[in-house]
């Protein structure tokens, strides 16, 4: 499903050139739950951005469902993104002026669905995340864990091909963090591909495979001891 070949990303700013990713080769199959780990500054966020079609590589091949999207413009990437990817961020990134319902609804609006269809899908997603009873509330009225659940609902509402999660438990305490990871695990068992970036050993254990990055390169891939396909 996703495959990179010699993927490289170099950042240039005035006099400094930083190689964030150095000839990365990875392969992710449909239905997998993959964690990407590494110390800070290893390039995992950069890799996530590229996989999420938020950024373009400087060099290399990036096969996205058999299309090489490495050279795609923002417009093309945007179109691919909205049809295929759902995002979960560390700081939730909900829109404060929107209710829970409206937040979850957002991707569907840009997909051009009718109001009726949107309602159906949003309600289903909220059910799944057990946030139905809060649908008219605003993010500032929810706890961190609840906000992240809403964010996950938004990520799945468009039925994307895979979910990108960037340190999903980063802003949560241990209890809520576990909740969220369980949810992700369930989604994966139901068939959603999940790519997660984390620096938490504990979170990584929910994944089937862990890719270790260091200074912009893949140094190892491990199968998770607990899970297997």
């Amino acid at each position: 499903m996703i495959q990179t070949n010699e993927l490289t990303r170099i950042f240039r700013a005035e006099e400094v050139e930083t190689t964030a990713l150095n000839k990365v080769n990875i392969n992710i199959e449909q239905g997998e739950f993959v964690a990407i780990m590494g110390p800070s500054g290893c390039g995992k966020s950069t890799l996530l951005n590229i996989l999420g079609l938020l950024d373009t590589p400087t060099n290399g091949v990036f096969n996205f469902f058999n299309e090489n999207v490495a050279g795609y413009s923002e417009r093309q990437r945007a179109r691919l993104r909205k049809k295929n990817i759902g995002f979960v961020f560390q700081n939730f990134n909900l829109i404060d002026q929107f209710t829970v319902f409206e937040n979850v609804e957002l991707p569907l609006i840009y997909l051009g669905l009718s109001a009726k269809e949107r309602k159906t899908r949003v309600e289903a997603a909220l059910e799944k995340m057990q946030m139905t009873h809060r649908r008219k509330h605003y993010p500032s009225q929810l706890s961190g864990g609840q906000q992240q659940r809403v964010a996950i609902a938004r990520a799945v509402v468009s039925d994307p091909k895979f979910i990108l999660a960037d340190e999903p438990t980063g802003n949560l305490d241990s209890a809520h963090g576990d909740e969220v990871m369980n949810l992700l695990g369930e989604l994966n068992q139901a068939g959603t591909t999940i790519i997660m970036v984390t620096h938490s050993q504990r979170d990584a254990e929910y994944a089937q495979r862990v890719i270790m990055l260091f200074d912009g390169q893949v140094i190892s891939e491990k199968l998770s001891s607990e899970k297997s396909n």
Binding site: L54, A78, R81, N93, I95, P107, S158
Partner: peptide
Amino acid sequence: SREVGIRKTSGANRIQ
């Protein structure tokens, strides 16, 4: 700006 980022991530294009 954050809202713009979120909308773009959720699929909005510039014209919208």
